[in-house]
């Protein structure tokens, strides 16, 4: 397992061997482990940036990690606003970061 993981823990013990799960994040091929969330698998792969603010484009990553803040929302296949922190990765999953959206009605921008 990769270096992003806590394999040995003095109290919780050694992490069990788990099956690898192959998935993509913005077309990059990554490996996670069965039963873990998209957020955990991405962080273990060193991915901190999960989306940007739809309007301002400011970058965001996980914040609350338990489904409250919606900051880690990503697109999975055709599903929008999937909370990375609550969603378990599946083999072949295509995860995409949230992108900036057009704001045609904002003052000062073209309609």
């Amino acid at each position: 397992m990769s270096k992003g993981r806590i394999i040995d823990h003095p109290i919780l013990g050694r992490l069990d061997e788990r099956e690898e799960v192959h998935f993509t994040f913005d077309e990059n091929k990554l490996i996670g482990y069965e039963g873990e969330t998209i957020a955990a698998a991405l962080l273990a792969n060193g991915e901190r940036v999960l989306r940007c603010h739809e309007e301002t484009g400011k970058l965001r990553g996980i914040y609350c990690n338990i489904g409250h803040c919606m900051e880690c929302r990503v697109n999975v296949g055709n599903q929008k606003s999937v909370r990375a922190c609550l969603t378990v990765i599946q083999e072949g999953m295509e995860v995409k970061s949230g992108r900036k959206l057009p704001t045609p009605f904002k003052k000062g921008e073209t309609q």
Binding site: E54, E55, K80, S81, L101, P102, P104, Q111
Partner: peptide, 9 residues
């Protein structure tokens, strides 16, 4: 409904 692609103007 939340921010998304413009559906219509």
């Amino acid at each position: 409904a939340s921010r998304d692609m413009p559906v219509g103007m």
